[in-house]
């Protein structure tokens, strides 16, 4: 009996060696930092001990909203970019449907490959490219518009604040359209072809097939992605809004993620930056569950 147990332990030991260290690594980097949320509740200065810092309750949470125009700007821009993202979220689906309609196989593949590429470059490269295309002195776009007499003189697109929301949304679509469409193409490909054949026998045209077979077929995928987007309403990401930031467009491009960075790592106000992070997480959880509840009411079945 004892022998068998020892035998078993001996067998399991290498498996434990293969898994436990990596498990602990994940716990260290994903779960351990959660205790850092405590910083949002204490008067902490970098370099001091967190435990000995004075506990101030929800003081910093109250401060978020009284921080004035900085926070209001960041919050407004965050909501604008997220709302635009949600409104435009059917675009990749539409693009996937158009690609799927192409019968010329090579061309279909070519479009998929080429349009997915911008997804795999960093925002710094995107910025560099936009800079060269939109710059005042030598920008291709400016030269084109001036030569076509649409503009009298070159226009500084990247430093024009009223254009920022539109321009950044456009750039973001340029980068992600093709890649986001691939998941829908995968969903479309998994629809049973017999359904189309049956519809054709019944005399349904292409458009009717799209409406009654394809769209219902990809709806679950769309719903899941939409729900995730709603959960991420307050996190538009950092990269894009950091690289395109400049003093002229700052009031229109600063989002919560860049604001948190500035507050935390530049101004070293750790508690306030953390409080915003905690606030974001709380809102995100509430949003996901609310959206799921609404979805459940409408469709009878939730996603989570």
């Amino acid at each position: 009996m004892l022998n068998m147990r020892r035998e078993r332990i001996k067998r399991v030991l290498p498996l434990l060696a293969m898994t436990v260290p990596f498990f602990l690594l994940v716990v260290t980097f994903s779960y351990v930092p959660l205790w850092g949320w405590y910083i949002a509740f204490v008067k902490y200065f970098p370099g001091e001990s967190v435990i000995n810092s004075e506990f101030v309750g929800f003081k910093y949470f109250a401060q978020i909203f009284s921080a004035g125009s900085q926070f209001e700007n960041a919050m407004r821009n965050t909501l604008v970019f997220s709302a635009v993202g949600l409104i435009l979220s059917p675009l990749p689906l539409l693009f996937a449907i158009l690609v799927n309609e192409v019968r010329w196989k090579r061309f279909k593949q070519f479009v998929q490959i080429v349009t997915s590429f911008p997804n795999f470059i960093s925002w710094i490269i995107v910025y560099s490219i936009c800079f060269t295309f939109l710059s005042v002195d030598e920008g291709v776009i400016n030269r084109l518009l001036v030569n076509l007499h649409i503009l009298d003189k070159p226009f500084d697109f990247l430093a024009t604040s009223w254009l920022t929301w539109f321009l950044q949304s456009l750039i973001s679509i340029w980068k992600s359209l093709g890649w986001s469409a691939i998941i829908y193409l995968a969903a479309i490909a998994s629809i049973d072809p017999e359904q189309y054949q049956a519809a054709e026998v019944d005399g349904a045209g292409r458009l009717q097939q799209i409406r009654h077979i394809l769209i219902p077929g990809v709806m679950p995928t769309f719903a899941v992605l939409f729900l995730l987007n709603i959960g991420n309403m307050l996190s538009n990401g950092f990269d894009q809004y950091y690289v395109f930031n400049n003093p002229l467009v700052h009031p229109k491009i600063d989002v919560l993620d860049t604001y948190m960075y500035r507050l935390g790592l530049v101004q070293l106000n750790f508690p306030l930056s953390t409080a915003i992070g905690v606030f974001k997480s709380a809102v995100s959880v509430i949003l996901v569950f609310t959206a799921n509840m609404i979805y459940k009411k409408v469709n009878g079945k939730g996603i989570i």
């Binding site: 898994t19 498990f23 994903s30 959660l34 850092g36 910083i39 790592l265 992070g277």
Partner: peptide, 24 residues
């Protein structure tokens, strides 16, 4: 093994945020 796997998968949806990560 189920516990370990689930813990790792759930970690995809958890983010402590910038400052806690920085302190770690």
């Amino acid at each position: 093994r189920k516990f370990m796997y689930r813990t790792v998968v759930i970690s995809m949806y958890i983010s402590a945020g910038l400052i806690p990560a920085y302190l770690l």
